[in-house]
């Protein structure tokens, strides 16, 4: 199988991972598309025989973090002007977006990035602790403590119905 067809085979899972990281499905597919483009450019860096899915998860996660930083920069740069022109507007939009989201989406979004990515890899993608720790480049102990804290927060947010 070629590199591309291997990517195509795991693409449904990559989209799922993107969705569990992102604020909405459009962001998720943008992230996924960007990750595929990056993977195709960086294909020489992938070592055959290692797990392509883990490699892709790492690319996506790093892209997401980088993008998050630029989102924050953009928010800092544009927020004052926007707040001046449309007072209260951004807040309203935020409320609307929340209404559209399911409880699980909302709860996941409220987690700190580092807990959400750990939860996404282990609980949604089904990676082992070892695999997830490697993707995130953190020690196992750090991973498990993020899983404990993330789960605690989710259970609190989702209530007894979790």
């Amino acid at each position: 199988m070629s590199f591309e067809s291997d990517l195509l085979a795991i693409l449904p899972r990559l989209r799922r991972f993107a969705a569990s990281l992102s604020r909405d499905r459009a962001d998720a597919d943008d992230l996924c598309q960007a990750a595929l483009e990056k993977a195709l450019r960086a294909r020489d860096q992938w070592q055959p025989g290692t797990r392509l899915d883990s490699w892709m998860y790492r690319i996506m996660r790093n892209l997401w973090i980088d993008e998050g930083r630029s989102r924050q920069r953009a928010a800092r740069t544009f927020a004052p002007e926007e707040a001046g022109e449309h007072v209260g507007h951004a807040g309203d939009r935020d409320v609307e977006a929340h209404v559209m989201l399911s409880d699980v989406d909302r709860a996941m979004r409220s987690l700190p990035e580092e807990q959400r990515e750990a939860i996404a890899l282990v609980l949604v993608e089904g990676l082992s602790y070892k695999e997830a720790a490697e993707v995130l480049d953190i020690p196992m102990g750090t991973l498990t403590s993020r899983l404990v804290r993330g789960r605690g927060a989710l259970i609190e947010l989702l209530g007894e119905a979790a």
């Binding site: 195509l8 449904p12 989209r15 799922r16 969705a19 699980v104 609980l123 949604v124 989710l154 259970i155």
Partner: peptide, 20 residues
């Protein structure tokens, strides 16, 4: 904890089943 894991997995599972 079992229910939380199931709920998350079920929530995101349909995305994997969608056509690319």
């Amino acid at each position: 904890h079992v229910r939380l894991r199931d709920r998350l997995a079920d929530h995101y599972a349909p995305i994997e089943a969608e056509p690319v």
